[in-house]
């Protein structure tokens, strides 16, 4: 969950969820007497448990085939492992009174590709995403998400390659309205300067929110301009 304030700035104190670019764990081929199939199956074991599961730092052994069938009532850590490969990234608008509104849900962010070394050729990779995910069923599962927003306006932020620190900065926000109605677009630009050597926030500049209307099926380039004195 990512939380934003009404000026579209990230609320750091609420944004503790973390998605790593990749994670490595193990599968061990074992038989589990406590599972109904009673046959050998790959079991997930994580030798780098990153979060507490059931009060201790360990993950698994968790059956891969049970995970694929969303049978999460079996030991060990099935719900946790399931979330690390099927989770969605939800963006929330947080109002001053504490109410929250769901802005956007990004699917297929987590566990987008799951691979291991091929058994037949050690120099080849084997894509085992389908061992973990029932790809046909994923749309049904996500359809249950409460109050799904209509994401019918696409945005693409275009950056010029030749921008230099100290220049007038012009960014182009390309918006495309895919709906059959006029949509009101609120653009809020926040520019933050971060020291790359100390990973420290130096300053932030927030531009006032601009409103514009975009007709049905239309697209438009919205220029976002920042003068040097506004960010230096």
């Amino acid at each position: 969950d990512i939380h934003w304030d009404i000026k579209q700035r990230p609320l750091k104190q609420l944004n503790s969820d973390l998605i790593c670019a990749s994670h490595v764990w193990n599968e061990c081929w074992m038989r589990r007497d406590d599972l109904s199939n009673g046959e050998h199956d790959w079991q997930i074991i994580d030798s780098t448990p990153v979060l507490m599961c059931d009060g201790i730092r360990r993950t698994g052994p968790c059956s891969v085939s049970f995970l694929k069938n969303s049978e999460l009532g079996f030991r060990w850590d099935s719900p946790f492992v399931h979330s690390t490969i099927n989770g969605n990234k939800a963006h929330w608008n947080v109002y001053p009174d504490g109410n929250m509104e769901l802005l956007d849900v990004q699917e297929n962010i987590v566990g987008s590709k799951i691979i291991t070394r091929s058994l037949t050729n050690e120099f080849e990779i084997e894509d085992i995403t389908e061992n973990y995910k029932n790809l046909m069923k994923s749309s049904d599962r996500n359809g249950n998400f409460v109050k799904r927003p209509n994401n019918d306006v696409d945005f693409e932020l275009k950056l010029s390659d030749d921008m230099k620190f100290g220049d007038n900065l012009t960014l182009q926000l390309h918006a495309t309205n895919k709906s059959n109605e006029t949509r009101t677009i609120a653009t809020a630009l926040s520019l933050c300067i971060i020291s790359s050597s100390h990973q420290k926030l130096i300053s932030c500049y927030d531009q006032p929110i601009q409103l514009s209307n975009l007709g049905a099926g239309k697209n438009e380039n919205i220029p976002l301009k920042i003068r040097p004195e506004q960010y230096m």
Binding site: H23, W25, N26, C28, I44, T84, I128
Partner: peptide
């Protein structure tokens, strides 16, 4: 990185005990 090394060590130990083991990498989109 360290994460992969942990997995490699666990696989070595597992195989030494006769339990087939493989290393799995999960990629998340940015």
């Amino acid at each position: 990185g360290t994460n992969w090394q942990h997995a490699a060590i666990l696989c070595s130990l597992s195989r030494a005990l006769g339990i087939p083991c493989r290393i799995v990498t999960i990629y998340n989109a940015a």
